[in-house]
Nucleic acid binder design. Structure first.
Lengths: 182, 182, 182, 182
DNA sequence: ACCCTCGGGACTACCCGTTCTT
DNA sequence: AAGAACGGGTAGTCCCGAGGGT
């Protein structure tokens, strides 16, 4: 149910996704939503964002173990994201970006969930960089730049229905990180 | 009217923005909208996106004239965007991103408008880089990276209600561009 | 609710009858309607037509039991219809004719409901005639003629706000049937 | 313009026919309607009904000259009506019936136009019968019955998308009239 | 005690027939 | 003669509680 709603929110955003659509996708009857989520749609979205964010962060941590350095890990993560983009016909970009943009200003609950999600990703990236020898301050800066680049690439790729921005940004990040840390 | 709707779409996205809200903001009666925009909300949004994109592109071109090099121009543009972000209490980020994410998959009209808008920005940035001595290919790559970074920074800054991502990305871009082209 | 809408559809037709008018007449809020009639106005009208048709057919069958022959039964039915016409100030003619004319071409659902309703009436009339000794073929023909005459009489009487066409057609049908079957 | 609107009113009725649809069909700009028809849609419909009624009455008179007796003339007229029904894919039945049912109760103007139209047809039929030797009173009665039968047949045929009711009623009327007047 | 059918309005985008103003 | 403006109206769908059924 959270999974189903997370997918829909990712593809359509908060306001474009109706509760009935979620119920249908989750094969759940309409009435029981407010039993499990007394906060209604808002709470549901917030929890879906949190869960989706955790999954991405886990992917980041897994890539960190699989790759020898930050450049490699970032490359892996971007390849996965690119794959999700194409396999969903460019409907599945960042799991939080759409909701963050179209709901986080009006719902503190959702806003907080998105903020925490982004922070957890940035922290994971920063940890990667520190492992490569970056200083605390440099890691903070660079992780923000890396995260922003990826988010922007996802936005551009989704809008253009073309993976080119993902590839270009991926290569740029890999080469930049490699140059700085080896 | 286009201005009013562009502002609302920028802040809330496509689906969260009601026609009545637009009418109210534009001091226009309900009935007149479908005379000027027979295509309804979709056409209105598409034209609003196009206009907003043109304005940003004009800002880019103006910055290109005001600054001696690409690094300077990008710095100016990001400062302006940061200013808009704070002066709107973090409701006004990229004028197209929210709509691009929550509507461009379901409306080809809006999708095309956003695609053209992003392309016009990327082209303007690429032109800047070529003026600094970049080759065609390098300019294409780098302009995508720059645009993606800015978009991601806007997303993060808006979500966090904090200009830090803007400043960090701005400084990173300026230093990167300066290093490569001087 | 079906009753209320049937009355309104009978008096005003499909397009002239607003959902809000139906809600008001049925003392039901709009949200409930789409729970019971997911197909909206179209489904509501189709079911209202079916119910109204059944009621008339029941009246036909009741008249068949009350009267010794077809002529008598038709006479009774037309008297009842004439009574409804006057008691409703000529707003209530045939419960299906108006909707059949102004909606059945654009809605297959409504069209089918009306078609079935008319058929059930014709069948009931044909059964009457066969009871009087008519052959199958003759009953089919004559029942169509009888039904058409009644429908036309209702149309003329309603338009003229005058029961004369009803009386004239009634007397004609009674005398014709009497002459042929006794 | 009157022709275009008459066709649309015939096929769809009064309320289902939009002014813009009429304007489009008549290649006329929307604003100038109220110059020619200050009474708006109501007046337009009333005049369209009058014109359409006149045309049918002219057809009736022409058939009266072409055929030797009433039975022949009615046969001709019904054949023409049946042809219009099929050639319009059962959208064009009686030019007034739909409007008479869905608008004449709420508009005295339209009601009067329809009443006059029906009366002119009945008068033409009565004249036919008198020519065949019927008395005044019998002609009045029978003309009502004939008109009602035709109207009902048109209704049934249109609803069923089948010319059978037209043929059956036609044959019945021809045989009845022949039997009575020769 | 948990589930969920059922019911409730406010709101949506859209379009209507009409009337200004030019 | 007509382009533009007007606001009330359309059907439809939204997210959400409250009461009946298991």
């Amino acid at each position: 149910m959270l999974d189903a709603s997370a997918d829909l929110f990712r593809a359509q955003g908060y306001h474009a996704t109706g509760l009935s659509q979620i119920m249908e996708a989750g094969r759940a009857p309409k009435g029981s939503l407010y039993f499990h989520f007394p906060g209604g749609k808002e709470q549901l979205a917030a929890e879906a964002m949190t869960e989706a964010a955790d999954r991405v962060r886990d992917g980041l941590l897994a890539a960190a173990e699989a790759a020898p350095d930050a450049a490699g890990a970032i490359g892996i993560v971007m390849d996965v994201l690119t794959g999700e983009l194409t396999s969903s016909e460019f409907r599945g970009g960042c799991p939080m970006a759409t909701v963050a943009l179209d709901a986080s200003t009006e719902s503190e609950l959702i806003g907080t969930a998105c903020r925490r999600g982004f922070d957890s990703w940035r922290d994971a990236i920063a940890t990667l960089l520190i492992r490569d020898g970056a200083g605390r301050e440099r890691a903070d800066e660079l992780s923000t730049v890396v995260l922003a680049s990826i988010e922007g690439a996802l936005l551009l790729a989704r809008t253009h229905r073309d993976t080119a921005p993902m590839r270009v940004v991926r290569d740029h990040l890999v080469s930049t990180l490699t140059k700085e840390f080896s």
